[in-house]
Design a protein around this nucleic acid. Sequence first.
RNA 1: GCUUCCGUAGUUAAAUGGAUAUAACAGCCCCCUCCUAAGGGGCCGUUGUGGGUUCGAUUCCCGCCGGGAGUACCA
Length: 560
Amino acid sequence: MDFKKHIADNIQAGDLTPDEIYAMLALPPNTEMGDFALPCFRLAKTMRKPPVKIAEEICAAYPKDALVCEVTAVNGYVNFKIDRDFWAKETLGTILSAREKYGSSDEGQGKTVCIDYSSVNIAKPFHIGHLSTTVLGSALYKLHKFLGYRPVGINHLGDYGTQFGKLISAYKRWGKKEDIEKGGLRALNALYVRFHEEAEKDEALNDEARAFFKKIEDKDAESVALFEWFKELTLKDVGKIYDLLDVHFDSWAGESFYNDKMQPVIDELSEKGLLVESEGAKIVDLEAYGMPPCIILRSDGASLYATRDIAAAVYRKKTYDFYKCLYVVAYQQNLHFKQFFKVLELMGKEWAKDLVHVAYGMVSLEDGSMSTRKGKVVYLQDVIDKCVDKALGIITEKNPSLENKEEIAKTVGVGAVIFGALYNNKIKDITFSYDKVLNFEGETSCYVQYTCARANSVLAKGGRAQSFEAKNILPQEFELIKQLSDFPATLKDALDKYEPCFIARYAVDLAQKYNKFYFDCKILGAEEGEKNFRLALTEATLITLKNALSLLGIGVPEKM
RNA sequence: GCUUCCGUAGUUAAAUGGAUAUAACAGCCCCCUCCUAAGGGGCCGUUGUGGGUUCGAUUCCCGCCGGGAGUACCA
C-alpha cells in the first residue's frame, strides 16, 4: 500500500491539498530519522511562521494510528515512521501472492506504444554500436508490457540506399557465393570495405554502384535477388543475437516499406503551403523555430530520411493509433528528430506531441570511433563469446561439480553484456573495453545472479515458509523490506523517464541489502518463527530480483 | 560562429531543489570449525570555474574553461 498517500491524507498544512503534500513528501537521509519526511521551509511564506514552528505544529496535530507509529519534528522537517512489523507483513504478503507479477500494473491499459529500436542495416554484422538501442528498446518494450501497455516493437530495417548498389558492385567484382555462404555477413562486410578502398582510387566505381542501386529500384531480377539474399543472411545472423539477448519485434517494416508512402506526405505538405523551394531542393523552413530547414526532396528529386520518417510516423499513427511512439536512437540524431517532429506539428498532426526521441550516448573504442567502412569494429558475437567463455572458466574453477555448466555460463555471460549496456544513464557515452564487460564483480548482473543463487540455495534447504509472522524485525531486515516495497515505484519511474538503468540499479541495491542481511542474520539456524520470516524474506527477494532482471532480458540460474 | 548535451574520489558512475554527496572498480588491510568467499567488513579519496535565484544548489539561470554531438540535399 501507499504509505506516502496515507500520511499526506492526514496532514493539515495551510491550504495545501493532499496531492500537493504528497508531492512534497521526501525521504530522510537515513532510516533512524524516519521513513518519510515533510520539509516545511516552503510553507513559511504562506503560513507566515518559522519552519521549525510549522513542523512542530504539524507534528503535534498528526493523528497517530496503527500505521504511523512515530512522528517527530526536527529542524523544520516532520519525520514519519511507519510501523515496521506492519510494513514487513504487508510487503511480503503482496510479493508472495503476486510472485512473477510483483511490480506489474494496469496503468497502461488500452494504450498502445510503438517502440522503434535496434533497426539494423542489411548486410552489416551486429556490432557493439547496435547494442544500446537494442537492449534499451527491448527493456522499454518489456517494461511497458509489464505495466499494462500494448507495446509494438518495430525494427525499422536499413534496407534502402546506395550502399546496396555498392555491395552488389563489390560482390559481382570480387565476391564468391561459397565464401559468403561460409563467411556470412563478415565476408560480405569485407567486400564493402574493399569497395571503399578501391573507390578511392577509381571514381567510376561509385557510378557503377549508383547504377546497381537503380536496378534494384527498377526491380531488375538479378539485383533484387542478390539484395534479397543479403537480407536473408542478415536476418539469420541478427536473429541469433536477438535470441541470445531475448529481444523480439512485432514489425520488421524497414525503410523500403515506405517507398510508396512518401508521395501523399509530399502532396500534403505542398497543399498546406509548407513546402518551399530553396537552392533547388524542396524544404520546410524551420527558421522561426531556430532550426535549419528540413529537406524533403533533394534537388535531383530524391527523397531523404526525413521524408521517410515522416511517412513512417503517419503510417504508424494510422495503423496502431499509438498513445506514444518512441524512437530509441543515439543523440547524434537529435536535430533530425526535432526537425521532423516539428514538421508533423506544422502539418497539424496533434499527435506529433506523442513522438518521443529516446536519445542515448555513443559508443566508441579506446582508440577512437568505430567505422564499418574501414572495418574498425568490435562484433557483438565476439564480445558475447568472450563473456560466456570467461563465465565458464570461473564456474569450472569455483563449482566444478555443477551440472549444465554451459547453459549457466551463457546466462551469466550474456547477462554481463546486457547489464553493462543498461547500468548507467542512457545519455552517457560509453568507451568500450573488454576489461569492463569482463569484470564480474561489484555492480554487475553476475553479482545479482549470484545473490539469487544464494537465495535459491537457502530455500532449497529450508523450504518455503508456509506462513510467517513479522515481530520486532531487525534493521537489516527492515532495510530489505523497504527496498522490496519500492520496486513498483521504481518501475513507474523507469518508464516515465525511459531509463531502464533505474531497474538495473535497483537490482544491485536490493542484492546488496540481501547480502548484508544474509551475512548478519542466520536464516536456517534461527528459531522457528524467525526462520519462517527470514525464509519468506529470502523468497520475496528472489522473486523481486528475478522480475527486475527479466525486465532487462537477463535470466537467473538456479545455481552457479 | 551558432545550437545542444556532458563535466562529481585515481577510474567508471549514483543522487524528485533538502538534513552528514552515495556506490563500484583499482590500491592497502581484515573475515570461511558458520545457510554458495562470484560474499561481508575496514582504510584511502570527490561536486571544473566565477556570479545569480533560494531558507537551502551536484541539481535551476547567466558567463567562462574543458570535452562530445549536430549544423541543407548520407542515415
